[in-house]
């Protein structure tokens, strides 16, 4: 049946109404300037897709392949992840990573707090000491690690020289990086040395923001120094402590340079942590698929930490 002009007009009006309703719906949902909004966010979306999403997606894909240098990848599904899960050497690397991370962060927390408390007290040359204590944080990691490699040297190192020859505390030098009891502790010590000023300076900033009246009121109420620390200082810097700890956990978990330069994960895998394991798998074994799988294995625990951090920061801002 032929369509009349009137019928056509009715149809187009209905269509127009539908489109308009849709637009109105979108406008109501996304706001009146949603088109302009899309235009504004487009560059950053493209940038994020190109620089973050694509490489990440490709890494996830490669982690599910058998990929050797110079050859195309062969898809193997979750084989690499399964293999890693039952690999004793990888399991030790996971355990070592947690020992290294939480050992370091724990000590950095204590030292950082101590540093901040000392620097808030009335000491002479406070600015000078603040500057001195920042040196480890400012020094390049590679330089610090190479220095410690020499400091820890069993025969020629300054640490053994001081302990054996100068102070005569030990009868014989210790193989700091070569013995089961000291290797992990030694690499943790370097990470602590390097990282504690960040804790200290952050805590110092938090402590300086606490109004002096609170301490005065607490003192008037008869609070001891410990009580003032517990009931005034700690609540005042609580958020900073959490954020600094979370950030440091992420950084320490991913720390490669210190362990690699000092021990390469040795001896016998005693200090093998996940970043070094990943590196060895990629450039030593040259099994790129498995290396990426090992790297992505770290993702869930790190993602958990990041989510906690982000939620905490959002909550802090809302307050």
């Amino acid at each position: 049946m032929p369509t009349t002009a009137a019928q056509l007009g009715t149809k187009s009006a209905a269509l127009e109404r539908k489109v308009r309703t849709g637009r109105v719906g979108l406008k109501r949902w996304l706001g009146p300037d949603y088109r302009l909004g899309f235009l504004f966010v487009l560059p950053i979306v493209v940038l994020v897709l190109a620089l973050v999403a694509y490489p990440f997606g490709y890494a996830v894909y490669l982690s599910m392949t058998r990929k050797y240098v110079g050859l195309p990848p062969v898809f193997v599904g979750f084989e690499n992840y399964v293999k890693l899960t039952f690999d004793g050497f990888f399991q030790r690397a996971v355990v070592n990573s947690f020992v290294f991370t939480f050992g370091s962060v724990g000590v950095k927390l204590l030292l950082g707090m101590g540093m901040a408390l000392v620097l808030t007290s009335q000491i002479r040359f406070r600015s000078f000491w603040t500057g001195v204590l920042l040196i480890p944080w400012v020094a390049p990691t590679v330089v610090s690690a190479l220095n410690f490699l020499w400091i820890y040297d069993g025969s020629l190192g300054v640490l053994n020289y001081l302990l054996v020859k100068v102070f005569r505390i030990l009868p014989q030098g210790v193989g700091w990086l070569s013995e089961a009891g000291t290797a992990m502790a030694s690499v943790i010590a370097v990470n602590v040395w390097r990282g504690f000023p960040f804790f200290g300076i952050s805590f110092l900033a938090g402590m300086k923001a606490i109004p002096g009246e609170l301490y005065e009121a607490a003192a008037v109420d008869g609070a001891t120094a410990v009580q003032r620390f517990r009931h005034v200082t700690m609540p005042g810097i609580r958020n900073i402590v959490i954020i600094v700890m979370l950030l440091s956990t992420i950084w320490t978990f991913n720390d490669f340079a210190i362990v690699y330069i000092l021990t390469k994960g040795g001896p016998g895998g005693t200090t093998m942590v996940l970043p070094v394991f990943t590196y060895e798998m990629a450039f030593g074994a040259q099994r790129l698929g498995e290396a990426i799988a090992a790297a992505l294995y770290m993702l869930p625990p790190l993602a958990f930490v990041i989510i906690v951090l982000a939620r905490h920061m959002r909550r802090g801002r809302a307050k």
């Binding site: 089961a180 040795g266 016998g268 005693t270």
Partner: peptide
């Protein structure tokens, strides 16, 4: 080549000297 590149023999010795494993266990590993 890969056994060399992964330092497997060094790890084997290291597991005995530092890791406290017996030579038999390190060899097996």
């Amino acid at each position: 080549v890969e056994v060399q590149a992964q330092y497997i023999l060094c790890d084997m010795a290291g597991r005995v000297v530092v890791g406290g494993l017996s030579a038999e266990a390190a060899l097996k590993e």
